[in-house]
């Protein structure tokens, strides 16, 4: 990898101040499981790496005001081991899908959210929008793992996060620190579909870092995550769905359905939510929600199978929640 200077500040603000406001010049190092590979491939070539390892305030998974606080340096294993996270079934199910103990021990929850897309064109240096000689490579290329929703272009990759669908369905917020101070937003607003090569798949400024993720109490919600996988271990899922259902009696009064690996962002499906609201949570409502979730799908030349997989993921996530 290209050589760089290294700095490990003691506070989030100092870390943000050590970052360049210009995209690509500096990089944030947390667990490193994604960043180091990108640097070895020279997809990322920062001249300075800012490590978060000395910032004690970013560690830990703790209870906070009836909910959950996940520090930006908390690892996936920290989340799985945490008593505070015990009531968040869908989140833990998603975390268990990250199987390699090495990745669980090194990789952070925030890093899972901010990992760059796994699109093989992007990973091989064609850029996030996979362009070559002014032409988009994905629509006529190898696209069996690419997006089936939100794929009108120019972005066709899928968001690779395992935990974002569950966290968004649980109503998570994220706090980020910049050189001037902190701001908070709904986790869903951390993600965007880039409309040009100058945009990324997240809304962070180049000199902002995530400091924590907070999740409201899941009390009163039935939640579930289901991943459709090619390999049971080690690999990313093909499609994932997380649901959170608030019940009134035996009927769903408030449904949240978020799919992963189907779109350039974690994909909240209002169609699936509408299909569930007012219904009992069972196989037939789950199936209806699954079909509704893909009603607007526009598969590419090789990935129509993902439409069916998404249907099944939603149906089974509803079953796991119920």
């Amino acid at each position: 990898m290209q050589n760089f200077e290294y700095i490990a500040p003691n506070s989030a603000i100092a870390a943000a101040q050590a970052l360049s406001p210009k995209q690509g010049l500096t990089a944030v190092l947390a667990g490193g499981t994604d960043l180091l590979s990108l640097m070895k491939e020279r997809v990322e070539t920062p001249t300075r790496v800012v490590s978060l390892r000395n910032i004690a305030a970013l560690r830990g998974v703790t209870k906070q005001g009836g909910g959950l606080r996940i520090g930006a340096m908390a690892t996936v294993q920290d989340l799985l081991d945490s008593k505070a996270a015990a009531g968040y079934a869908s989140l833990l199910q998603a975390a268990r899908g990250i199987t390699a103990p090495q990745v669980r021990a090194m990789g952070t929850v925030a890093g899972d959210l901010l990992q760059r897309p796994r699109c093989w064109y992007y990973r091989n240096g064609y850029g996030l929008l996979a362009m070559h000689d002014g032409k988009a490579l994905v629509p006529s290329g190898e696209n069996r793992y690419h997006a089936i929703l939100g794929n009108k272009g120019p972005a066709y990759f899928v968001n690779a996060s395992s935990l974002a669908p569950a966290l968004i369905s649980l109503g998570a917020q994220v706090t980020v620190a910049g050189p001037e101070g902190e701001r908070s937003m709904a986790l869903a607003d951390l993600f965007q579909i880039p409309s040009s090569a100058s945009e990324r798949e997240n809304t962070l400024e180049p000199n902002e870092i995530v400091t924590e993720i907070t999740v409201p109490s899941a009390s009163g919600w039935k939640t579930g995550t289901y991943e459709v996988r090619q390999r049971q271990l080690l690999d990313w899922p093909l499609v994932t769905a997380s649901v959170a259902l608030r019940m009134r009696g035996n009927r769903v009064s408030d449904a949240r359905v978020v799919l992963g690996h189907v779109a350039p962002i974690p994909w909240r499906s209002s169609e699936a939510e509408t299909a569930l609201n007012g219904q009992a949570a069972n196989e037939s409502s789950g199936e209806a929600a699954g079909k509704a979730a893909v009603s607007a799908a526009t598969p590419l030349s090789q990935n129509s199978a993902k439409v069916q997989l998404a249907t099944i993921a939603v149906k089974r996530a509803v079953a796991m929640a119920g």
Binding site: N3, F4, E5, A18
Partner: peptide, 8 residues
């Protein structure tokens, strides 16, 4: 280990 840059 400090908060000053080191390297490259």
């Amino acid at each position: 280990q400090s908060s000053e840059p080191v390297g490259p």
